[in-house]
Simulated assay, not measured.
Amino acid sequence: MRPLEREEALRLLGTVPLGRVVFTRHALPAVRPVSHLLDGGEIVLRVHDGGAPAALAAPSEASGAVVAYETDDLDPRTRLGWSVVITGFAVEVADPVLAARYARRLRPWVQGPEPTRVVRIRPDLVTGFRLERDPAADVRAG
């Protein structure tokens, strides 16, 4: 297992369309799968009004809700790949022009009514690892 530098972790996060947002709901941890995009180093999501993840979006920078965001690309057969976890503050995108631009670029991961709100997460803590094949183990096995 090799730790990832911040830049590599964010780059990898941007290569996949789905992840899991972790937030607090009724004073307990909650996790939901969501579609995302990476824009300027921030994670952007769309959520439904009234849905559980909508509660994670604080209306302003000053009162951003603390959340975690996790995504990965792990091969179940080889058990190799990578995982990235972001911890930061989630705020609603209030600018209607910017929100509309994100909405056009972000496809929901499930069929149904279109999400009505756009949320961005500013990464403060970025951690990740890559699971790689050990070349020394290949030599010993060969």
Results as ranks from 00 to 15, higher is better:
residue 16 V to I: 00
residue 18 L to N: 04
residue 19 G to M: 10
residue 19 G to P: 04
residue 19 G to I: 04
residue 20 R to C: 07
residue 21 V to Y: 11
residue 21 V to H: 04
residue 21 V to W: 11
residue 22 V to G: 10
residue 22 V to Q: 09
residue 27 A to H: 02
residue 27 A to N: 05
residue 28 L to G: 00
residue 28 L to S: 10
residue 28 L to I: 03
residue 29 P to Y: 01
residue 32 R to T: 14
residue 32 R to E: 10
residue 34 V to F: 09
residue 35 S to T: 07
residue 35 S to R: 11
residue 37 L to Y: 04
residue 37 L to I: 15
residue 38 L to P: 09
residue 38 L to T: 11
residue 39 D to W: 07
residue 39 D to S: 12
residue 41 G to R: 04
residue 42 E to S: 15
residue 43 I to K: 01
residue 43 I to R: 03
residue 43 I to W: 09
residue 44 V to W: 10
residue 44 V to E: 04
residue 45 L to M: 11
residue 46 R to A: 15
residue 46 R to C: 12
residue 48 H to N: 12
residue 50 G to V: 08
residue 51 G to R: 05
residue 51 G to L: 00
residue 51 G to F: 09
residue 52 A to E: 15
residue 53 P to Q: 07
residue 54 A to R: 09
residue 54 A to C: 06
residue 55 A to I: 08
residue 55 A to P: 03
residue 57 A to S: 06
residue 59 P to S: 00
residue 59 P to K: 04
residue 60 S to I: 02
residue 61 E to L: 12
residue 62 A to E: 13
residue 62 A to W: 06
residue 63 S to G: 11
residue 64 G to Q: 03
residue 64 G to P: 03
residue 67 V to R: 06
residue 69 Y to W: 15
residue 69 Y to N: 12
residue 69 Y to G: 11
residue 70 E to Y: 09
residue 71 T to F: 15
residue 71 T to Y: 09
residue 72 D to T: 02
residue 72 D to M: 06
residue 73 D to S: 13
residue 74 L to R: 01
residue 74 L to E: 13
residue 74 L to A: 01
residue 75 D to Q: 08
residue 76 P to R: 01
residue 76 P to D: 05
residue 77 R to G: 13
residue 77 R to H: 12
residue 79 R to Y: 01
residue 80 L to F: 00
residue 81 G to P: 12
residue 82 W to T: 11
residue 82 W to G: 11
residue 85 V to E: 05
residue 85 V to H: 08
residue 86 I to C: 09
residue 87 T to E: 14
residue 88 G to Q: 10
residue 88 G to M: 02
residue 89 F to D: 14
residue 90 A to K: 13
residue 90 A to E: 07
residue 92 E to T: 08
residue 92 E to A: 14
residue 92 E to K: 04
residue 94 A to W: 04
residue 95 D to G: 09
residue 95 D to S: 10
residue 96 P to I: 04
residue 96 P to E: 07
residue 96 P to Q: 09
residue 97 V to R: 12
residue 98 L to Y: 06
residue 99 A to I: 13
residue 100 A to N: 04
residue 103 A to C: 06
residue 103 A to M: 03
residue 104 R to F: 10
residue 105 R to P: 01
residue 105 R to S: 10
residue 106 L to S: 03
residue 106 L to F: 01
residue 107 R to G: 02
residue 107 R to F: 01
residue 107 R to P: 00
residue 108 P to M: 02
residue 109 W to V: 08
residue 110 V to M: 11
residue 111 Q to Y: 07
residue 112 G to A: 06
residue 112 G to F: 07
residue 114 E to Y: 03
residue 115 P to G: 08
residue 117 R to Y: 02
residue 118 V to S: 03
residue 119 V to F: 05
residue 119 V to C: 07
residue 121 I to S: 06
residue 121 I to H: 07
residue 121 I to G: 12
residue 122 R to I: 06
residue 122 R to M: 10
residue 123 P to C: 10
residue 123 P to W: 00
residue 123 P to A: 01
residue 124 D to Y: 14
residue 124 D to K: 09
residue 124 D to Q: 14
residue 125 L to N: 07
residue 127 T to D: 11
residue 127 T to F: 09
